[in-house]
Design a protein around this nucleic acid. Structure first.
Lengths: 172, 172
DNA sequence: GCTGGATGCTTGAAGCCTAAACTATATCCG
DNA sequence: CGGATATAGTTTAGGCTTCAAGCATCCAGC
């Protein structure tokens, strides 16, 4: 199944393919997961820049807000995006400046601020989102529906495995 | 001990779980792949910082050099790490400054420079690498060997799918 | 009420990362 | 040889990201 005919990019995982055998196969699994994800993510970033002159974090923030019409606080956004709080501060500031997002005080809590998409934000995101979905489908089109289902399920197990092994965080 | 960056349980993929059905399942697959990878990667970064006061990119560069005792040019490193050329310039400079990596001219080509681990670099990396491998095994310990094998194989298909769909890169 | 701890957010320093422009060297080919 | 093209690496501008420190606000219990 390896494309021996075309040895294109030599990534870390490929380089390890001929490493001393008997070594932990968990490591190999992880490296393959990482390179696959990095490959897809890089392509998505490139296309977002090329077609919409935007970035993945901006897209992700818009996506989070698009799914929450009532708005989200900065903290809620940072949890959904799995990034730090301070990160969202700057990201949101740039999107507000560009007129895609608005922030307003949350009634009853003078600490929190609600972020919401503006009309322009909704419009822009709708276009980007459609393209994004098509890109993903294109990139994964080499997998059959059965393979996709199996992969989805196994990744679910992996996710649970990681969350279980993680230092007891809060589970609301 | 509680920085503002700990990822709780509600991530983007989970938030999408109740999205309108009939939507592309490729997108769900991708989001699950991304959150799983992000989860593991974030934990590895945290532990590298905590236990070795280093970062994942530094670790990755050392790993690439460790697998190539004869040394690698900056360009070869950037291809293996799948990052830009300019990125490696700064990364390597910091590692050279810290005495973990040395650079020397490549005989016969005055453009290229070879990077190699110093003795200290080899020593440090050996410790980090052992810990890293154990962490990965720990985080993925919830998967059976069969599941790991299946996941590895499916990710291989996904990788091929992406590389096939990618705009004709160089094929030497 | 008041006070101590939690929560929401911002700031600053440092590192990571990319694209694009640039320099220098190598190589191909007529 | 000499020019065109390719390759190796650096630089720069700008965005992303984290951690740690800090400010303001909220809330629970006294």
């Amino acid at each position: 199944m390896s494309p021996d005919s075309l040895p294109p990019a030599i990534d870390a995982e490929t380089a390890l393919a001929h490493a001393p055998p008997g070594h932990k196969d968990e490591l190999r699994l992880w490296l393959r997961m990482l390179t696959t994800t990095t490959l897809i993510e890089g392509e998505i970033r490139r296309r977002l820049r090329r077609d919409f002159d935007t970035t993945l974090p901006r897209f992700d923030l818009l996506a989070a807000l698009d799914r929450a019409p009532a708005g989200l606080s900065l903290g809620e956004v940072s949890r959904r995006m799995m990034v730090s709080n301070g990160n969202v501060t700057g990201l949101a500031a740039r999107l507000v400046e560009d007129g895609l997002v608005e922030r307003r005080a949350r009634p009853g809590d003078r600490r929190a601020q609600l972020l919401r998409l503006t009309a322009k934000g909704r419009r822009d995101f709708a276009r980007q989102s459609a393209a994004h979905e098509a890109w993903i489908a294109e990139l994964l089109s080499g997998l059959s529906a059965v393979e996709r289902g199996a992969l989805f399920r196994l990744l679910g197990h992996a996710k649970i495995s990681v969350r279980t092994a993680l230092p007891e965080e809060e589970t609301p």
